[in-house]
Nucleic acid binder design. Structure first.
Lengths: 266, 266
DNA sequence: CGCAGCCTTGAGATTACTCAATCAATGTGG
DNA sequence: CCACATTGATTGAGTAATCTCAAGGCTGCG
């Protein structure tokens, strides 16, 4: 049921073309799609990226793709599906660090360390594109503007973490939950371009609690309270944000996904 | 104009007081000092950095060096003194995001955005070296290995933030305070090389609370409890870590400052 | 000596947690 | 198509932790 990355990497190095359930090779790598949204890529840059292209990998719902302590060779770009990475605390609780959607880069912070610092778990089925860590060196040599873009992406992630640190260390349960919904909404909108206020929410309340540092019980009460205040409404696997202004106010939310500044790029 | 590695080494060994107390040679950029601790710099790289050198700036205790919303042109490298950056919450409380010591880079996450996301406040008097944001582009063009190092530093910062998110969203007051002391200890040790277990602590308990998401009252109680348990002892402006093992266990601390992996560097 | 900033301590209020039971939704097999 | 199992969500009651408000003590400095 749950396969680890080590299995995957072993099978990859053994017979690269024999990935099970492998989809047809895309003519365009996931990373190119991702980065093209942010800057226009030159021929040289496209060429540099295309050489890093690796076969994509499918994953099943609830699959654990890697675990804390695993040695790693790759970054991943999400092609399809939702995933999150998490750390288990000694007391049995769990902190969900980041929730990933199509277009997101997974495992960036780990490349400065020798082993994984989080588990990667699939929320839905989907697929990811591996991107060899060693290929980063090539990008830095051949495509400095791409390298700068990667730094920008890492720095934006950091800003988001700072925002979250502020919210989660001080705010009420309702504000934390509101923040999570707003952040997911902003991220999904930035990648899908969808402007609606309803978002798909495959996480259950226990997982929401793991994300924002609450128990499932407290999440339930917070969601109910937000509904009663008329700020959100929930369906089976969906959340609708009814009063964006009030929601943003109550958790001091700022959208960091709207822009990436490139003025200092080479 | 161009500085050689031997010049560099000579100036290093020639000014033994170049650590915390004294002021290093002005001819030596702060950033070179910082980065040299992590990798050996080539002549080209030193040359690329030396052109970015700007005059350093002194600051006074409690001075606010920049504020949320300011437009920015520079990163800063701390030359001397302690600072922190913080965000004021609408309810009047404050979140201290990061505490900076000599050798640290300030303002990195902001360069992906157009304005500052935090205030920068001096804890003690000291000085910083501005490093023009536009110079980053040059580094990415001319010195890809330096660029990769900068990315690594940003990614390490991100890992530290993830650790903190985990601790501050779930742990008890005692664990939060213990974590702060351990992190400061690890950082100071990594830059000064000091192996002692006593650390200088210019922050008052209100500021400690702003760092870890507690009130000054709770900080006082947590510190007292840690002392009664024999885990730490405090003097006027100093904290001594008496039982590192137990402290690390209670807050699940990991030292991220011990290593930077460079195996993928160009 | 007296002031100001900081730390400590107490008591009650608030908030989220734990434990436990129940309800609702979803999926499965007969 | 329905009975049943499973998972997830809700609700209640009591507990534990931190917060707020407030008073008092300590320390360094003019």
């Amino acid at each position: 049921m749950s396969r680890t990355l080590s299995d995957f990497e072993a099978s990859q190095s053994g017979s690269p073309a024999a990935g099970r359930g492998g989809r047809p090779q895309r003519t365009q790598s996931c990373l190119v799609t991702k980065l093209s949204q942010l800057i226009d890529l030159s021929e040289v840059e496209l060429d540099s990226l295309s050489r890093l292209q690796t076969e994509e990998r499918d994953f099943a719902r609830d699959e654990v793709l890697f675990s804390v302590g695993d040695h790693h060779q790759d970054l991943y770009i999400v092609q399809d599906g939702w995933l999150f990475n998490a750390i288990d605390a000694p007391d049995g609780r769990r902190q969900i660090v980041n929730i990933y959607h199509p277009g997101d880069i997974i495992g960036f912070p780990d490349i400065a360390l020798s082993t994984r610092t989080t588990d990667l778990v699939a929320v839905t089925k989907g697929s990811i594109c591996p991107f060899p860590k060693s290929g980063l060196g090539t990008v830095f040599m051949e495509a400095p503007r791409l390298a700068a873009l990667l730094l920008s992406i890492a720095l934006r992630e950091e800003t988001v973490l700072i925002d979250r640190l502020r919210v989660f260390s001080r705010s009420s349960a309702q504000a934390r939950v509101a923040y999570l919904f707003l952040e997911l909404h902003a991220r999904l909108r930035s990648t899908t371009g969808d402007a609606g206020n309803t978002l798909y929410m495959p996480l259950n309340q226990h997982e929401i609690g793991d994300s924002v540092g609450l128990t499932n019980v407290s999440v339930s009460r917070a969601v109910t309270a937000l509904e009663e205040r008329g700020l959100i409404s929930t369906a089976s696997r969906e959340v609708t944000l009814l009063d964006m202004e009030e929601l943003q106010k109550m958790c001091d939310f700022e959208d960091r996904y709207a822009q990436v500044v490139t003025d200092w790029f080479p």
